[in-house]
Design a protein around this nucleic acid. Structure first.
Lengths: 194, 194
DNA sequence: TCAACCTCATAACAGTTGTTATGCAGTGAA
DNA sequence: TTCACTGCATAACAACTGTTATGAGGTTGA
C-alpha cells in the first residue's frame, strides 16, 4: 500500500468531473480522464486501484463541495436566512453549483441498477440531511420556526424542494430563473416561520 | 423502409426497461436486451436502426406512461383533488411508478454530457409541464386557486416538488413514506387554494 | 409454383473498455 | 554508490461494445 498524495488524487478526480460534464459518465473512461490531464492511464491506475474506487472518490467530492458551500453559508448569516442560504447551496445558481448538480445527476443515473453505488448515494444524502435536521432543531429551539414542524421530516421536504428546483433548471427549457428559484425556496421557508 | 409492428417495438422497449432497472443503463447492451427477450440481437437490430433510436423510443415511453397515468387521474376526479391526483403520477407510490422513476433518472443521468438526449428530455418535460399549466389555468378560471398564481411558473414549482419528493424516495434511506409524500403534495396544493 | 417480403439467427467487423505487467527515470536514505 | 521506492509511460490482454452483412425459414399474394 503506497503512500498517496491526496492532491494528485484530487487532480484526477477533477479531471474526471470535467469529462463527465462534457462527455457523460459512461464515456468517462480511464483513457479519457488521463487525456484530460495531459498524461497517460498510468497516472490514473497509479492513484486508484480501479475505476470503482475512482468513481466513489469523485462522488464523494460532490458531498465534500456541497458541505463546504453549506459551511460558508453557516458562517455568514443566522436564523431562517441561514437555512435559506444553506439550502441555496443545492441550487444551480452559479457555474460551480451547476457543475456539482450535473455530476450529481450523472452519478445518480449511473447508480440505477447498481446497489452499491446507490448505497453510497444514500449515505452522502443522509449526511447532508443530518446537517439540515440539525439546523431545523436549532431554529425550533430559538422559536424561529413553528413548533409543530418535525425536523426529520421537514429536512426531507426541504431537500426534495431544492433538488427538484435544481432538476427543473436541467430539464425544463422554460425553466425557473435563478431569482425565481431563490424566491421559491424563500417563500417555502417563510411558511415555516413562527 | 419496412413496415414495423409497434407491438414488437414495445416488447423490445419493455425488455430494455427491465434491463435498465436491474443492471443500469450503461450495461444495457443490445445483447443484454436480446437475452432479456430470450432471442438474439437480430430482433433488436431489426426493429431499431441503431441504439440511439432504441434509447429515444424507450425514453419516449416514459412520457407516454406518465401521460396515461395523468389521464386516468383527470377522468376520476375534479377540482384541486384532480391536480393532486395528476401530480401523484410522478410519485413512486407503487411498483409501476417506481419503475418509471428509476428509468427516468437513469436516462437523465445518461443525458448529462449528451446535448441531443438532454433536449429530448426537455421536450418531454415540456409536454408534461403544459398539461399542468392547462390544469392550473382551468382551476384559476373556476376560482379554485388564488388569482395571484402564475400558472406557467407554478407548474415548474409543482413539478419540481413531486420530482424532488420522488428523488427523496430514491436517495434517502430515511425517506418519506408514501403517505408522507402524498401529504407533502396535498399540503402544498392546499396552499394554492382560494 | 414462384417470387417478394417479414422475421430473425448467426457471425464477423473494428473499436473501446478496465485491468495488469513491465520498465524506466527520478529521489531520498543508508 | 547502492538500494528501495514513488511517479508515470507503454504495451498487451481478454472482454465487450454497436454495427453490418448474410442467409435461412415462414408467410403472403399473384
Amino acid at each position: 500500500m503506497p503512500m498517496i498524495q491526496t492532491d494528485r488524487r484530487l487532480e484526477v478526480s477533477e479531471a474526471a468531473w470535467r469529462v463527465i460534464v462534457r462527455e457523460g459518465l459512461d464515456r468517462t473512461s480511464m483513457r479519457a480522464i488521463a487525456q484530460e490531464m495531459n498524461c497517460t492511464t498510468g497516472v490514473v491506475t497509479h492513484y486508484f486501484r480501479n475505476k470503482q474506487e475512482l468513481i466513489l472518490f469523485a462522488l464523494h467530492q460532490v458531498t465534500e463541495r456541497l458541505q463546504v458551500l453549506m459551511e460558508q453559508a453557516v458562517a455568514n448569516s443566522s436564523g431562517c436566512d441561514r437555512l435559506v442560504t444553506m439550502l441555496s447551496s443545492f441550487l444551480p445558481l452559479d457555474r460551480e453549483r451547476q457543475e456539482i448538480l450535473r455530476v450529481w445527476v450523472a452519478f445518480l443515473g449511473y447508480a440505477v441498477g447498481r446497489e452499491d453505488l446507490m448505497v453510497a448515494h444514500q449515505q452522502s444524502a443522509g449526511e447532508l440531511r443530518q446537517v439540515i435536521i440539525q439546523e431545523l432543531v436549532t431554529l425550533q429551539k430559538q422559536k424561529k420556526i413553528r413548533s409543530d414542524i418535525n425536523p426529520a421530516i421537514e429536512a426531507n421536504v426541504l431537500l426534495a424542494l431544492v433538488n427538484g428546483v435544481g432538476l427543473d433548471a436541467l430539464i425544463q427549457l422554460q425553466r425557473l430563473s435563478p431569482e425565481q428559484q431563490k424566491a421559491v425556496l424563500q417563500r417555502y421557508v417563510d411558511g415555516l416561520r413562527n
